[in-house]
């Protein structure tokens, strides 16, 4: 009998381990402290992540890596998305083994992605052409951004964005989607109006149900793409995960009512990060056109 399309015990353990690590070294206090000091990348945290194998996860053991596969990387990045972990995580992960120090969190690697570059000022190594980059006042307090004068798609000669980068972004979005679903449900269970929890009202229940439906549909697509690693599966996963994260954060904000509109609640941080990730290469029209081309054969 096959293991099947479910998490193995090892994968569950890995996910729990990453969640625990992030709760310890990037809990809510650290998150809010980071919000208060925008643009500063915590190099200590970066090294902790490196030591834990976050960047070297897929690097062969012979090369000093953890030797795991894409499904495990997806689970780790899902947790990073949940925790709103800041930094150029995808670029540094992809640079492990290629850029000295990236694998173990000693080097911060940033990649130019379309018209944007995240965390450019914190970079030790920049991949791609960042000349002419102009800083912009980022909507996300946890992601400094530069705007680039060049055209959209990175490395068009190589046929578009690196599918693994697209997939890991999808995994982060999935993490956001799952987290905002939990936050919405928690709030709906505890917040009382008209003498009962607002989660007893159908209008609120249906928002929460849609949050879960989008998350679980995206989860199936993201996990499957991690197994097949096919570019079309990855494009599909990314479209579903972007939708689940962005619309999920919006609905979560709505369920929170006035609290959701405050700086103090974390909901806006999830929404803003989801917006930033949705801008990365491989989503939106790019993914849709890729799939349309596959359909047309």
């Amino acid at each position: 009998m096959n293991v099947r399309f479910r998490l193995t015990d090892d994968q569950r353990a890995l996910r729990a381990g990453v969640r625990e690590l992030l709760a310890r070294c990037f809990g809510r206090e650290a998150l809010r402290a980071a919000v208060g000091a925008p643009g500063r990348l915590d190099r200590t945290l970066w090294r902790i992540l490196g030591e834990a194998g976050f960047f070297a996860l897929r690097l062969p053991e012979a090369d000093g890596g953890v030797g795991l596969g894409l499904p495990e990387a997806v689970l780790a990045f899902e947790e990073a998305g949940r925790a709103l972990l800041p930094g150029p995580l995808v670029a540094t992960h992809l640079a492990a083994g290629g850029v000295p120090g990236a694998a173990h969190g000693e080097t911060v690697v940033v990649a130019v992605d379309g018209e944007l570059a995240e965390w450019l000022d914190a970079a030790d190594v920049v991949r791609g052409d960042a000349s002419g980059a102009v800083p912009l006042r980022s909507v996300d307090p946890l992601t400094p951004l530069h705007r680039l004068p060049g055209p959209g798609i990175p490395d068009p000669a190589a046929g578009g964005p690196d599918p693994v980068a697209v997939l890991l972004t999808a995994a982060e979005q999935l993490g956001t989607a799952g987290r905002v679903c939990e936050l919405a449900v928690e709030h709906a269970r505890t917040r009382e109006q008209f003498g009962r929890p607002i989660g007893a009202f159908q209008a609120v229940q249906h928002l929460c149900a849609d949050l879960l439906v989008r998350t679980e549909t995206a989860r199936a697509a993201v996990y499957a793409a991690a197994v097949t690693a096919g570019p079309a599966d990855i494009a599909a996963a990314r479209l579903l995960a972007d939708e689940a994260a962005v619309r999920g954060a919006r609905d979560c904000l709505q369920v929170h009512g006035g609290m959701g509109f405050t700086w103090e609640a974390d909901v806006h941080l999830h929404l803003k990060r989801a917006w930033v990730r949705a801008q990365r290469a491989g989503g939106g029209a790019q993914g849709e056109e890729l799939l349309a081309a596959v359909l047309a054969g």
């Binding site: 549909t217 697509a221 599909a236 799939l291």
Partner: peptide
Amino acid sequence: PALRRRLGRLDAEFRALWRLTQWNVS
């Protein structure tokens, strides 16, 4: 392009639904 994108998104949708089916069966 709007129609192509709509078809592309539907393709993503049904790929995901197929995977969700496999997930539920598992």
